[in-house]
C-alpha cells in the first residue's frame, strides 16, 4: 500500500512541468548575476571618476586586437547558441547539435585567447602585487586590479557556461532535450547571452578607453 502511494507520487512529480516557471526562475537568477557584476561596475565607475587620466594611461597597455577578436568570437557564439535553440524547435536535432558544438568551440577559443592575453601581461610583470605594478600610480594599480578581477570573474562565468553547455550537448544527443521539451537548452542560452552581454560592456570599458 505504502509503496503504491510512493510510486504514484513520484510519477506525479515527474509529470509536473512548468516551462514558464522555469524561464521565470532563470530570469530572476540572471537578475542576480547582473547585480553581482553591477557591484563591480559601480566600483569601476567610482575609480574611473577619481583617476580618469591614469585609467586612460593604463588602458593604452591592453591589447585591443585580442579584445576585438574575443568580442567577435563571443558575439558569434551567441548567434550559434540562438540558432541551436531555433533548430531544435524546428525538430532539426542534427543542426542543433552542430550549432551547440560550435558555441562550445567558440567558448574554448575565447578562453585560449584570454590565456595568451593574461600570460603576456603577467610576463611583462603586470599582475596584482607585482613589483612593476606597485611602482605605477594608484589609478593604474586600480585599473589593472579591476581588469584582472572583472575579466577574471567573466572568464569564470565562461568556464561555468562551458560546463553547462557540455551537459546540454549530452542531453541533446541522448534525446533528453527534444523539440517539445527544450526549456533547459533555452535557459542555458539565456545564461550564455548574459555572459556575452557582460563582455560587451567590459570590452569598451577596458580596451577602448584609450
Amino acid at each position: 500500500m505504502a509503496s503504491n502511494i510512493e510510486a504514484t507520487i513520484s510519477i506525479e512529480q515527474q509529470a509536473h512541468r512548468d516551462d514558464v516557471g522555469a524561464r521565470m526562475g532563470m530570469w530572476l537568477f540572471l537578475f542576480t548575476e547582473i547585480l553581482l557584476f553591477g557591484g563591480m561596475f559601480l566600483i569601476y565607475a567610482v575609480y574611473r571618476y577619481q583617476y580618469p587620466d591614469q585609467f586612460h594611461l593604463a588602458g593604452m597597455e591592453l591589447n585591443t586586437g585580442i579584445g576585438t577578436l574575443n568580442t567577435i568570437i563571443l558575439l558569434t557564439s551567441s548567434l550559434t547558441m540562438a540558432l541551436s535553440i531555433a533548430a531544435i524547435q524546428k525538430k532539426n536535432k542534427a543542426l542543433s547539435i552542430i550549432m551547440l558544438s560550435s558555441t562550445l568551440l567558440f567558448a574554448l577559443l575565447f578562453m585560449v585567447n584570454k590565456f595568451f592575453e593574461w600570460s603576456a601581461k603577467i610576463s611583462h610583470g603586470i599582475f596584482p602585487g607585482s613589483k612593476e605594478l606597485l611602482e605605477k600610480q594608484n589609478g593604474e594599480i586600480l585599473f589593472f586590479g579591476l581588469y584582472y578581477v572583472m575579466t577574471g570573474l567573466h572568464a569564470f562565468h565562461i568556464i561555468i557556461g562551458i560546463v553547462i553547455l557540455t551537459f546540454m550537448l549530452v542531453f541533446l544527443i541522448r534525446n533528453k532535450i527534444t523539440s517539445d521539451n527544450y526549456v533547459k537548452l533555452e535557459n542555458s542560452g539565456l545564461y550564455w547571452h548574459l555572459v556575452d552581454l557582460i563582455w560587451i560592456f567590459l570590452f569598451p570599458l577596458f580596451y577602448l578607453i584609450q
Binding site: L36, P128, L146
Partner: peptide, 29 residues
C-alpha cells in the same frame, strides 16, 4: 544578496592577491 556576494569576494581577493580595490595604501577606498 549579490551585492554582498561580490563585496565579500573582493575582500577575499584583496587578502589573497592585494589588488588594492579597498586598500587605501594602493589608492582604494
Amino acid at each position: 544578496t549579490p551585492v554582498i556576494g561580490i563585496t565579500i569576494l573582493l575582500v577575499i581577493i584583496e587578502r589573497a592577491f592585494g589588488v588594492g580595490i579597498f586598500d587605501p595604501a594602493l589608492g582604494g577606498d
